[in-house]
Simulated assay, not measured.
Amino acid sequence: MPQIRPIKDLRNTMEISELCHESQEPLFITKNGYGDLVVMSMETYEKSLAKLELYQKLAEAEAQIKNGEELIDGEDVFKDLKNKHGRK
C-alpha cells in the first residue's frame, strides 16, 4: 500500500530513506494536503525504468506484428549472437 507523508517529514531524511528502502515502493509527499513529490530508492527507480523499457519494447514488437512486418526466428537470433560473440 502506498505511503503518503506530509512535506515536513522530509526533515528526517534518515527515516525517509529507511522507509523507501524497506517498502521498495515510492513514497508520496503532500504539500498543503495535495500531492507534490514522489521519493523512492535508487533500486526501486531502476526497477521502474527497466519495466518501462520492457513495456515499450513489447509495444513496439506488437506494433510490428500488427503492421505485418517480417518476424525473425528466435533460435536464429541466438545462434547469430553466439557466433558473433565467440560462444558455441
Rank of each mutant, 00 (worst) to 15 (best):
R11H: 15
K82N: 09
K51W: 07
T44I: 05
L71C: 06
G74Q: 08
K8Y: 02
N83V: 11
L27N: 00
L58M: 08
I65V: 11
K66W: 02
K82P: 02
D36N: 14
E70G: 14
L54Q: 14
I4F: 15
L37Y: 15
S23K: 02
G68L: 04
D73Y: 08
E25F: 04
E62P: 05
V39H: 01
E22R: 10
K51A: 11
S17K: 12
E53W: 13
R11P: 01
M1K: 09
E60I: 08
N67P: 04
E69Q: 03
Y45N: 03
G86Q: 10
V38E: 00
N12T: 15
I72L: 06
L27M: 02
S48G: 15
N83F: 09
L58A: 09
E25L: 04
L52A: 14
A50L: 07
E46Q: 10
G86I: 07
E53N: 11
K31S: 15
K51H: 12
S41Y: 00
C20K: 00
G33S: 03
I7V: 12
I72P: 00
A59T: 04
S23H: 01
K31E: 15
E69F: 06
F78T: 05
G68Q: 03
L81C: 14
R5I: 00
N67G: 11
Y45M: 06
L54I: 11
P26H: 01
K88I: 09
K84N: 14
Q56L: 09
